[in-house]
Design a protein around this nucleic acid. Structure first.
Lengths: 339, 339
DNA sequence: CTGAAAGCGCTTACAG
DNA sequence: CTGAAAGCGCTTACAG
């Protein structure tokens, strides 16, 4: 099983032209006469020639590879985002080199280094923050970085998130309007911007109405942790009449735990999530939640990334996309609530 | 924002050695004196030098990139497999270039070509078949291909699947033993080997007991299709007392449709799925199902892939991994059923 | 062990 | 438009 590589020189020999002529025929933008193009295409087809992308990358300095760092693949939001990102990038002639993120920041730095060794044209991190050392290094290397679904107070980094503070506030207003009086929050991981922002908006919304949370937990974006919090919440003498959960993935755990205790979401306790992953619409959960518009987030990510690749002096952008509250049966709907 | 690349020549100049010496220090297996190693490492650290993986790939002919073609990312089995594959490959110093598969075979061939242009060392396709033209081309190029969770009657291709025929048969035996008399099957996509094999085993199992399916549908591995089939199944005068569903992803849809009609899975109708994705264990579904052991499938995939990369004359393998029936509440358990 | 040199497969000024 | 040549950043025989 010998690897027989067909090179542009082979095609050139067969077509009776120079190697550069072959290269020009396969380089978008370069020019060649109709006659040459025809001879080269014919020879290439006969030989089954295809340009070596790696060689092209070496000389052009553009690999057309985007590095993607992902985590939380058990949260349906991310596979979905991955699929959309991949499709959008493929359409632009880029491809994704994927790295699964270890849990520590150290680990992520290592992974980012590996990525840069592959001479990627850009890096997208999904649900992952990076150290400022690494941000600096990427900047020095001229590799644009876009944080997807995570913000970081660093103007040198682009980021795309939904309007998390605003979303948290919307939930507070919605639950208050529904007449809930004991509203708990199982927050997203407090070491992540999304977890903190949603909580901040939520608490602000309560405070503006003179209310306070019934209880506050860090659910760590983890299913088991969220279940544990829920069991604790409903084991006391007084239990909450509503729980705002930091993302849908944890909200499903909350609902499972509630039912296990014989409580009915939407009747006994209102549950609101965040994300609106496809599962949220399934009858088994029918979860009221804030929608994070994946498509719009993906499009923003891709366009800011490409802008920075193609025009290296483009400034990084911090993009926030508004999310809407999706009403379903897991939470009581206030009388006359505007859709 | 100029891209300043630091090369081995820069390091050599600063360390006062030749460029080849620098290369040797960074090439596993190559030898250099302790003195040289020290000087080079020091200079490299000061300059922030890292070898260009693409250049290395060009000369060595090994990119250490594995192409992965995926589809069905909404079926939790695949994101999980992707994560495990990525981790296992990262541990071996390989990385994944990911391509999302279009739905047509033509489209997939195009994608495979793109992959080969990147000089990948191997290709893994998850839940996707490839044309024989492409299989030939990959073989000619010396690029090993492993089909993950899909078989194809082609000895030149490696494949890793669970024992699908056997799994289907187990389900038939289980449901029969439970005294079910009207057993329907919403099969996996009949253009896929997994869909066909599970169905074949299931029908064989019924036939051996002199039974026949109550009804047979192709669910296409699609949620909406599966819901449609279910509604049709339960709208008649006589309804099934059990449904074997070709994978968990569709089984969740079946359960949703059943509940919508006021039927209780496990009481009114027994439901059995295939895969045992994490969701199947959630209280909301508690689905009886055949487990596809992701870890073992991933390990088999990685080891057969690496074997073929490292020893090009290694023969392709067709690996089948046995799956166990996981009992939960969605299906009636026969008296005295051996676990 | 070490350096000079060739070469991996391309693109891209540079002449013509 | 076209070809000869340099060069992208490495690895790896080849001498010494």
């Amino acid at each position: 099983m010998e690897r027989v590589r067909i090179t542009s020189a082979d095609v050139a020999a067969r077509a009776g032209v120079s190697q550069s002529a072959v290269s020009r025929v396969f380089t978008p933008g370069a020019s060649a006469s109709a006659r040459t193009i025809e001879k080269v295409r014919k020879a290439a087809a006969e030989l089954g020639y295809r340009p070596n992308v790696l060689a092209r990358a070496m000389v052009s300095g553009k690999s057309r590879i985007i590095g993607l760092v992902v985590a939380y693949l058990d949260n349906q939001f991310y596979p979905l985002a991955l699929e959309r990102l991949s499709n959008a990038l493929q359409a632009e002639g880029y491809h994704i080199l994927i790295f699964t993120a270890p849990n520590s920041t150290d680990g992520i730095d290592g992974v980012m280094q590996d990525l840069m060794d592959y001479q990627v044209d850009g890096i997208i991190t999904a649900s992952v923050s990076i150290s400022s050392t690494l941000a600096d290094r990427a900047e020095a290397a001229g590799i644009p970085v876009v944080l997807f679904n995570r913000g970081q107070g660093d103007a040198a980094l682009s980021s795309v998130t939904s309007a998390n503070v605003d979303g948290g506030r919307k939930v507070a207003e919605f639950l208050l309007a529904g007449g809930h009086e004991r509203i708990a929050h199982i927050a997203g991981w407090q070491n992540s911007s999304t977890g903190r922002d949603r909580q901040a908006g939520f608490l602000a919304g309560l405070a503006e109405a003179g209310a306070e949370p019934f209880a506050l937990f860090d659910g760590m974006y983890n299913r088991d942790v969220a279940m544990g919090c829920t069991r604790e919440l409903i084991s006391g003498a007084e239990i909450p009449d509503a729980i705002f959960v930091g993302n849908d993935h944890m909200a499903f755990a909350v609902i499972d735990a509630l039912r296990e205790a014989g409580l009915v979401p939407g009747q006994d306790i209102s549950i609101v999530g965040y994300d609106d992953v496809p599962l949220a619409a399934w009858a088994a959960f029918d979860l009221t939640t804030i929608r994070q518009p994946v498509n719009r987030m993906v499009n923003a990510t891709v366009s800011t990334m490409l802008a920075q690749i193609e025009q290296p002096d483009t400034a990084p952008q911090q993009i926030e996309i508004e999310g809407e509250l999706i009403l379903r049966s897991s939470a009581r709907i206030p009388e006359g609530w505007k859709t």
